[in-house]
Design a protein around this nucleic acid. Structure first.
Length: 835
DNA sequence: GCAAGGTC
């Protein structure tokens, strides 16, 4: 009897393609089955999943949030169902005929679970087929071949550990999210979420904000002196020994600071009392894991989300390795010389690669963590040409290349020179540093290598004191977490994963818990964290993950089982709910109060109630009174962007200022009342005849200031004639004597009020608007959306999407089908951020 | 419509 083909199942298409190429000796051919790639050669088939293709959820009868008490979710049944129908269908078709199955998903816990999900789908249609498991940590010929020669079995205990995590996350997350949302009557889009990872992440941000709020600044003074030797001047700083004999520079008492300063001022020389020289080795950085990559990209201006999205594109295009990894050890069979060699002769990297190849020994650095999932992020050696990548993509690609260079470069050496001098019993110190061996800095310019100069001096030498100064300072509150610091801290706390941490931060933005960058928590966030601390401490604590990790280890090594762990977790949640239900009302009113505080601008001038930011039926924002319908006072807001209430308050109206968040077009609107008043006071300035209705009805064009803060050239017969041309929001608009020959309108000039800025010769407003529209039609408007670079905009244009309205009106699936490498979800994200 | 984890 002839056996069917062998079926190899990987976690993603990319891995399937590469494994098929290796095992087939490049002879595998791709076929489409249900829209899914199947690689085929000899008696083999290889298919890539898309991570989890089945999901866990409650049965449909639990869907209605109002019908089901949240507490009921704790013991509700949980189903598994296919979430990627086409892939599951293709897998079933292939499995039916398979003579042997090999699970080749990623070599980590989640990979084992994804493998088990595939195994179960296979078993549904093929009861008897043999199923093997292979494990490898990088898709190289040697590792893959070896893995297929040493086949193993699926580790069902490890997969069960992952299943326990799924269930516990779902039950806690769903039950608590529904409870909080219901208690504050926040259903629909604005529900109030909590979860094992977002909870502690949010608490981290809120705790820091609490520290900032509680911070009480202290005054202190610092003293400096300029010392000089042979016309070479350098700065030295006053210090003293505190009660613990530690060096201190801050003087906490004004009188002693002034006394020391006066002493310094009276003296013209300082005596060198000690000179210390030492050399320090500055070792090159470790290979990139996801967190360190995000951090480095952050330091050159990319948000975590943007950095990962670009890395994903570079990976899909084949230029860099898989961007989601914890590993900081290069695989053994990565040959640094071979990889360096692929860069020789290139314009941007050739010289550096060649100089690195001249080293006798090349020993790459390694970080602390070594894992089995994927290699650290490094260039593949396949080189993009400049036109293949957008500017941003190239910048990130260069970062990855240079990081690889740095990890195979030599250490740098610094010479430190520390000089201590005495002035009338007062100590001054200066620290100089010189880069004596450039080492990896030569190929990796992202770390500072700036030097500070201190001349060669000797003990006992007299130096001239040429200047002295005193600075009054205050201690500063701790800084807010930036996105990459947040991700690093999450990693240290052990919450989230390399693939999800940046998404979690995005989720906190989406839920209205944080705003701005670095993220600042809203009142709602504080209320949610406080509610968690009071009634469900685990959900805002990193302990929950630590405990879960411990339980998962136990399940994986067979000392605990899935049933016991999930049951125990459910019992704990029951306890939590007892406290919650008892305090449901006060909890709800606290949350409602904070939700309102997040929207409050200040007192209504008509009735004294609160003015709130509201959303109209058409989806635009405006300022309305909480006393509505008794009070109908309103103020308009600009039509672009999402309003953010700033801490700054207008003194005249006691209203908070408003900023409009709109990506690169973000701007500060200020006090909406002031803006409206300005518009009311501003007379319209007539500049010519209206081209639409001038002849027929005598309409005229005028420069108008609207109450929403925007300005335009519009017809005086508005609303009977709605002809209008846009004007910039900022700057003084001057009407010149020069006239446009074509339209008969005067040229306009915009001055910023800042003398350093060149005035903007806007010219004839009609010509200006035409040019603006032409630029838009060039497709560049699309690039204003996050995630769309030059290259993507080009692809969209080819698919017939010319501008933002065109993008918004299109069907995401339709675009995804036409544009390679773009999924429907991505399109939806673009559409959302275009609003 | 809830979570967190894969991946696009």
């Amino acid at each position: 009897m002839s056996r069917g083909p062998e079926l190899i199942i990987t976690e993603k298409d990319n891995a399937a393609r590469r494994i098929a190429a290796i095992l087939s000796g490049e002879s595998a051919e791709a076929e489409r089955m249900n829209g899914v790639n199947v690689y085929k050669w000899g008696g083999k088939r290889c298919i890539g999943l898309s991570g989890h293709v089945v999901g866990v959820d409650f049965p449909p009868e639990y869907n209605d949030w109002r019908d089901v008490e949240p507490v009921e979710l704790i013991d509700a049944p949980i189903d598994k169902h296919p979430t990627q129908e086409n892939i599951v269908a293709a897998l079933r078709r292939l499995a039916r005929k398979a003579g042997n199955v090999v699970i080749a998903t990623d070599y980590d816990r989640e990979g084992e679970l994804i493998g088990k999900e595939a195994y179960e789908l296979v078993r549904e249609v093929n009861e008897d087929v043999n199923v093997d498991r292979v494990r490898f940590s990088s898709i190289t010929k040697r590792e893959v071949t070896e893995a297929f020669e040493n086949r193993d079995d699926l580790d069902f205990d490890l997969a069960a550990a992952g299943e326990a995590r799924q269930v516990i996350d779902l039950v806690w997350g769903a039950a608590l999210t529904r409870f909080l949302s219901l208690s504050a009557r926040q259903l629909g889009n604005d529900f109030i979420s909590v979860g094992r990872v977002q909870g502690p992440t949010l608490k981290l941000i809120v705790d820091r904000e609490r520290e900032i709020d509680a911070f009480d600044p202290e005054d202190y003074w610092e003293l400096f002196a300029d010392l000089e030797k042979d016309d070479e001047s350098f700065e030295a700083r006053f210090f003293y020994l505190d009660e613990d004999d530690n060096e201190a520079e801050r003087v906490w008492d004004e009188a002693s600071a002034m006394e020391a300063f006066e002493t310094l001022q009276t003296k013209s020389t300082a005596t060198v009392t000690s000179v210390n020289r030492r050399t320090r080795t500055d070792t090159p950085p470790a290979p990139f894991n996801t967190t360190q990559f995000i951090r480095a990209a952050g330091s050159i201006g990319y948000s975590a989300q943007r950095a990962m999205s670009i890395a994903e594109d570079l990976y899909t295009a084949g230029y860099i390795t898989y961007p989601r990894t914890d590993n900081t050890h290069y695989p053994e069979d990565l040959d640094p010389r071979e990889l360096l060699d692929s860069f020789t002769g290139t314009r941007d990297f050739g010289d550096d690669a060649e100089s690195l190849l001249e080293q006798e020994d090349i020993e790459p650095t390694a970080g602390e963590k070594e894992t089995t999932d994927h290699p650290p992020i490094h260039p593949t050696g396949e080189l993009p040409s400049a036109s293949d990548l957008s500017e941003d993509e190239y910048e990130v690609y260069e970062l990855v290349v240079r990081r690889f260079f740095a990890t195979v470069a030599e250490a740098a050496k610094w010479e430190h020179l520390r000089v201590v001098a005495d002035v009338a019993g007062l100590s001054l110190k200066a620290n100089g540093k010189r880069l004596v061996k450039e080492g990896y800095h030569a190929v990796y310019p992202y770390f500072s290598s700036s030097e500070s100069f201190v001349p060669d001096v000797e003990e006992g030498e007299e130096l001239a004191v040429t200047d002295t100064s005193i600075e009054a300072k205050q201690t500063q509150p701790p800084r807010r977490y930036g996105q990459s610091r947040l991700i690093e801290t999450m990693e240290q706390m052990g919450i989230g994963t390399k693939a999800t941490r940046h998404d979690v931060i995005q989720k906190l933005y989406d839920r209205g818990y944080i705003e701005s960058d670095p993220p600042k928590p809203t009142r709602l966030a504080r209320a949610v964290v406080t509610a968690g601390e009071d009634f469900a401490d685990l959900i805002v604590s990193e302990e929950m993950t630590a405990q879960l990790e411990e339980d998962m280890l136990a399940i994986a090594d067979g000392t605990a089982n899935y049933e016991d762990v999930t049951n125990e977790s459910r019992e704990m949640l029951e306890q939590v709910f007892e406290g919650l239900m008892e305090h449901s009302d006060e909890l709800g009113s606290q949350l409602k109060k904070s939700l309102k505080a997040d929207k409050t601008l200040g007192p209504c001038p008509d009735c004294g109630e609160d003015l709130l930011i509201r959303k109209s039926r058409h989806g635009s924002y405006f300022v309305g009174c909480d006393g509505y319908p008794d009070c109908t006072y309103t103020l308009p807001l600009p039509s672009t962007g999402k309003p953010l209430i700033l801490d700054e308050e207008c003194e005249e109206h006691e209203l908070h200022e408003v900023k409009m968040l709109a990506g690169r077009k973000t701007f500060t609107h200020g006090c909406p009342q002031c803006k409206a008043d300005e518009a009311d006071e501003q007379e319209d300035e007539v500049i010519g005849a209206c081209p639409d209705c001038g002849e027929e009805h005598g309409g005229e064009l005028a420069i108008k200031q609207l109450r929403s803060g925007s300005r335009l050239v519009g017809c005086t017969r508005y609303p009977d004639c709605d002809y209008s041309l846009p004007l910039p929001r900022r700057g003084e608009i001057e009407v010149t004597d020069e006239e446009c020959e074509e339209h008969g309108l005067p040229h306009l000039v915009v001055t910023s009020g800042d003398d350093d800025d060149e005035p903007w010769e806007l010219g004839c407003p009609i010509c200006n608007y035409r040019e603006y529209q032409a630029r838009q039609a060039g497709g560049s408007e699309l690039e204003s959306i996050q995630g769309i670079g030059e290259k993507t905009a080009e692809k969209l244009k080819e698919a017939g999407i010319e501008d933002v309205p065109g993008l918004k009106d299109s069907d995401p699936d339709d675009i995804a089908a036409k544009v390679s490498g773009v999924g429907a979800d991505t399109v939806r994200k673009w559409q959302a951020s275009a609003d």
